Amino acid sequence: SDPSEDRAPESARVGNIPSSTSALKVPQLKVAESAQGPAAAHTTDTAGYNAMEESVSREKPELTASTERVNKRMSMVVSGLTPEEFMLVYKFARKHHITLTNLITEETTHVVMKTDAEFVCERTLKYFLGIAGGKWVVSYFWVTQSIKERKMLNEHDFEVRGDVVNGRNHQGPKRARESQDRKIFRGLEICCYGPFTNMPTDQLEWMVQLCGASVVKELSSFTLGTGVHPIVVVQPDAWTEDNGFHAIGQMCEAPVVTREWVLDSVALYQCQELDTYLIPQIPHSHY
C-alpha cells in the first residue's frame, strides 16, 4: 500500500522531449479497484494519511515538438484524482505547456489535490511534501474552472485551506508558501528511527529536511552541544517487537515522539509542542 509513485524524486515530463529516451519516465500509475468507486480507492491508516495514492495507467502520452515553447517555470503533480480527472489535468497541462510529473521533486511548483467545495482535502504524501516545500497546493477546481473560463486563473483563489485531520481552515499551505525564510524545523536534528508504514523513510526524512531540520541516520550520531535540539521520530504501530520503542531512551537523551508530530506540524506549518506526542521511555539503569 506504499505510494510507489511518490517513492523517489524522479520526474516524468509531459510536453517536451528529453535529450535521451532513457530520461523519459512516463507516468504509469495504477488505479485502486473498488466496488464503491474512486472515493473508496484510498486506504487510510490510523494517522489519517492516505497511503494508496491515486492515478491511472495510460499509454505513453503524445509528445509535443521539441521546437514548441515549453513553460520551464511550472511543474505539476496530482493527488487523489480519478483517472478521468487526471486526464483533464493532463490536457490542461499540455495546453498551457506545463510539465506534469508523477513524482514530486524540487522543481515541482504545483500540487493539485482532490478537494471538496471548500478546498479541504485528504492528507497524502504529496500534500505533506508540497507544503514542506512551500509549493502551491491547490484544489482540482483550479484546473476545472480555468478550463471553463478558457484562461489560467489565479492560484490564490484555489489554494487548499485545510484537511480532514488537522482542520478545515488552518491555511497550512499558504503559511508554508509565505514562510520559506522561517522554516519550522530549523535548529532541530531529527532521527527517523525504526520501521514506518505507508510512507518510505527517505520521503519522511526529505520532508523534515525541507522544513529546515538536519537528518541524523543513527541514534549515536546526534550532535551533543548547545543550540541543537535532537528529536527521535517513530511509528509505534509499525513495530513488531512489543514496546521496543520504549527503550530508545536508553540509547540517547533525545525526546522520542510519534510520526504524528511531524505530520501535524507540516500540515499546519507550525512546529507543534512535543508534549502530546511524547512516547514514555524506560529510564537509564543506574548501577
Rank of each mutant, 00 (worst) to 15 (best):
S1T: 04
S1Q: 11
E5V: 05
P9S: 07
E10V: 15
S11G: 03
S11I: 07
G15D: 06
G15E: 06
I17Q: 05
P18Y: 06
S22F: 08
A23H: 05
L24R: 10
P27Q: 08
P27R: 05
Q28R: 10
L29C: 10
E33L: 07
S34E: 14
S34A: 04
A35G: 05
Q36H: 09
G37A: 09
A40R: 11
A41G: 05
A41E: 04
H42G: 08
T43G: 09
D45A: 13
D45N: 15
D45V: 07
Y49D: 03
A51L: 06
E53Y: 09
E53G: 09
E54L: 10
V56L: 13
S57L: 07
S57R: 07
R58V: 10
E59S: 09
K60S: 11
P61D: 06
L63H: 02
L63P: 06
T64L: 14
A65N: 11
T67S: 14
V70D: 14
V70P: 12
V70G: 10
K72Y: 06
R73N: 06
V78N: 12
S79P: 01
G80H: 08
G80C: 06
G80E: 01
L81S: 07
L81T: 02
T82A: 09
P83Y: 07
P83F: 07
E85S: 14
Y90T: 15
K91P: 10
F92P: 01
H97T: 07
H97P: 10
I98H: 05
I98S: 07
T101I: 03
L103F: 09
I104F: 15
E106K: 07
E106D: 09
T108W: 05
T108H: 04
T108V: 14
V112T: 03
K114M: 06
F119Y: 06
C121S: 08
E122T: 13
T124M: 00
Y127S: 00
F128S: 00
F128L: 01
G130R: 00
G130T: 00
G130D: 00
I131L: 04
A132V: 01
A132K: 00
A132L: 01
G134K: 13
K135W: 03
K135T: 08
V138I: 09
S139V: 02
S139L: 01
Y140L: 06
F141V: 04
V143N: 02
Q145T: 12
Q145L: 05
I147Y: 15
I147G: 11
R150I: 05
E155F: 08
D157A: 06
F158R: 00
F158L: 00
F158V: 00
R161A: 05
D163P: 00
D163F: 00
N166I: 12
N166V: 11
G167S: 04
G167H: 03
G167T: 02
R168D: 11
Q171S: 08
P173L: 01
P173S: 02
K174L: 06
R175L: 09
A176N: 02
E178L: 13
S179W: 04
Q180D: 15
D181R: 12
R182V: 07
I184E: 00
I184K: 00
I184A: 04
G187I: 03
L188G: 01
E189Y: 02
E189W: 03
I190L: 12
C191T: 06
C192G: 03
F196R: 10
N198S: 10
N198L: 12
N198T: 15
N198E: 15
D202S: 15
M207K: 02
Q209L: 11
L219M: 04
S220R: 13
S221R: 11
T226L: 08
T226A: 15
H229L: 13
H229S: 11
P230A: 10
V234W: 05
Q235T: 14
Q235E: 14
P236D: 03
N243V: 14
N243R: 15
F245L: 13
F245S: 12
G249T: 15
M251T: 13
M251P: 15
V256W: 11
V256D: 03
V256G: 00
V257P: 00
R259W: 03
D264T: 10
S265R: 02
L268D: 04
L268N: 11
Y269L: 15
E273S: 11
L274R: 15
L274W: 12
T276R: 08
Y277G: 02
I279M: 08
P280Q: 13
Q281L: 13
H284M: 15
H284N: 08
S285I: 03
H286F: 03
H286K: 07
Y287G: 12
